[in-house]
Design a binder for these strands. Sequence first.
DNA 1: TATGAATGAGTCTTCATTCAT
DNA 2: CATGAATGAAGACTCATTCAT
Lengths: 223, 223, 223, 223
Amino acid sequence: MIENKMNEQPEIYHKKAFDKITQEKRERILNIAIHEFSSKGYNAASINTIARDSGISIGGMYRYFKSKEALFMSVLDRGYTLLEEALSKVLSGNGDLFDRMEAMLYISVEYARNYREINQIYLDVSTEGLSSLSKRISLKMEGITAKIYHELLTEGKEQGVLRPDIHPGIISFCLDNLVMMMQFAYASDYYMERLKIYTGSDIENEDQLISGIMDFVRHGISG
Amino acid sequence: MIENKMNEQPEIYHKKAFDKITQEKRERILNIAIHEFSSKGYNAASINTIARDSGISIGGMYRYFKSKEALFMSVLDRGYTLLEEALSKVLSGNGDLFDRMEAMLYISVEYARNYREINQIYLDVSTEGLSSLSKRISLKMEGITAKIYHELLTEGKEQGVLRPDIHPGIISFCLDNLVMMMQFAYASDYYMERLKIYTGSDIENEDQLISGIMDFVRHGISG
Amino acid sequence: MIENKMNEQPEIYHKKAFDKITQEKRERILNIAIHEFSSKGYNAASINTIARDSGISIGGMYRYFKSKEALFMSVLDRGYTLLEEALSKVLSGNGDLFDRMEAMLYISVEYARNYREINQIYLDVSTEGLSSLSKRISLKMEGITAKIYHELLTEGKEQGVLRPDIHPGIISFCLDNLVMMMQFAYASDYYMERLKIYTGSDIENEDQLISGIMDFVRHGISG
Amino acid sequence: MIENKMNEQPEIYHKKAFDKITQEKRERILNIAIHEFSSKGYNAASINTIARDSGISIGGMYRYFKSKEALFMSVLDRGYTLLEEALSKVLSGNGDLFDRMEAMLYISVEYARNYREINQIYLDVSTEGLSSLSKRISLKMEGITAKIYHELLTEGKEQGVLRPDIHPGIISFCLDNLVMMMQFAYASDYYMERLKIYTGSDIENEDQLISGIMDFVRHGISG
DNA sequence: TATGAATGAGTCTTCATTCAT
DNA sequence: CATGAATGAAGACTCATTCAT
């Protein structure tokens, strides 16, 4: 029922020439691109600026990437890889369902903090203006987490800690909504502001916040 | 603790000339603008295109709006008004806390469907590139809903249907996360895709989905 | 030998409608126009702004003046009238040649100070970009002063205070160069800066400056 | 007391790319720009027109100059260089004070004739609308000449050919007024017209005019 | 292979002028 | 008469992309 629709073989958005340069150079280019895209948004970002800041020529840029859009795809792809790495901790973690849901919240916040710029780009993607292709890449992210929730809930049911009548898909959706919004909040000023409007200023730290959320979750799903 | 910080007098982003034209023309221009902004994003949207498509001259556009930014603000403002109207049903509605939370979900979905494009624009706004433009006006939206949740929860506590130890701010945040993501899903292909990844294809209609969410909520907060 | 080429009947640059409104309104329009043209230059000045600031409609403006250029002409014409009035003091003044030359310097400075904006417009006119017509108007100014110098020098020769071999035309030109540059200095920051570069900061006031100039003049032309 | 305030290191207003193209192309662009600015004035001049007339693309123009303002500054700078070259003859020249003052008049006339358009641009600069742009660079021009007069007068005093009581700053100012107005006259129709109003048509050539002026100067300052 | 010069369509915005009301 | 809405050409400037070297 929960299924990862995005398990096609990984698509490559850069040209072969990009594989031939040193990893250091490759990463520098992608990092500069991440910075440019995240700080200005897709449309306002300039490929020429990215090239200059990366210390390569514009011509070089176009030898690595077919177009601005292809570069953007590659950037999204890199974000995907980074998130995958971060979340692998949860998958391999131990503890019960709730411990691992809590870990998920903490990791999301940490991830959002560490990769603030990448997250901002992912926020950007949901805009209609960006091609359907870039949406597909972004959704791969959800594929990962969906899988995790599926595992958690299946396990939880087996262990009898969950109410038996819950719908795992809907609950996954709910849980990820909570996680995702936390991530947004720590990635973007806008969503942090929103968080504060709700919680008020009496929430001192994220421990308190996460504990409050976990309380809600625990009652929401335990049997 | 939950407070509406946004009680400044309403700001007007259009010039006086815009008030003088027929409502039909006014709406046509705004609708075209909404379409343009939502389909291309702020930066890629063209004021000249909006003018042409609205059947008015470029100069005319600038008689109504000081700048592209002002036009965009007006569009956001319109969305705000529409949401406020839609949500007033919840505020004035009757029934208990859960009935009204359910109403909120339904209204959000309906609002997202009816004003799909406006919602996409709001998604866009959270992008860093635009935040300085419109953070303030967008947060007014959250102000409305924050107030509603505050009322609901206060009432709920008084009626004894809530666990007494819940933190109203955090719960408001959680509830709105659920509402907001529903809204996103019905406004944007991207988030609808995400919804489907979670719930799978066995969710036939939104009644079932909302009922599942309400189930989660009910257990999550009732005493 | 010194002749005023500009004694054609005065041309009118405004439409008849302009004569029919009250003098107060007429002056207000011209003064606002003077301010706009002087502060922004001919090209950057906006006829719409002048209309709005004058409290009349754009349509009204075009009932008074055929075009932006015609308005500009009228402004120049008004400046001419004001200068003529100011200089009439010199013509009717008494004292010898040098007293009156000195008076001329003082009046020019005073005129430049009082009608700073008009002077700036006259400076602007010398730019090639403006029509030959507007140049003709501006030159009427020189016509007046040329006549004055002619009188002064003729008188001076008769009284025997001048070297007999001087060429009145050339000396008129020299004298007016001195006067004009004083006027420029007190009308424009740019020329004031230039003045200071030459005289240094040890010139305390214009009395000292004018006295120095008169010293030069006296030796330059007396017999 | 007369001092060249403008001894900062020379500022460069064009981008590096402009240095890399052939001199022929560089000069063509500057000459076209000079023509455009002089014939229309700064505001009415069009960078797009300059680009087209120079046979380069608009984008190319912006590879050479950051902005319209930068291009204008470069044009002014070129005029400065040319004047400096022309006047270096006076500085290095021999002969007494009056010979050199006379040379200065001749050179100014020659310069004005050869670089008519540049001179018109300098006239334009004094307009208030542009003063903020170019006050600094234009005053560099005066800096050059101020230095020359200072030398001439100092030398003249030492040689005892000057009245001892003259104020060098004021006299410099007077001398430059005469020189500058000659320059204006031979650069602009407007000031040539003015010159004729004064001298009448009986001045056949500039030799006669310059000789008349020198006569005035000689008496004005010699001891 | 690598460079970066060159292009030009397209962006936002202004403003003189016209003309229906 | 008077208004001011409407027009649209034109201006400064940007940037993805191409291609000669």
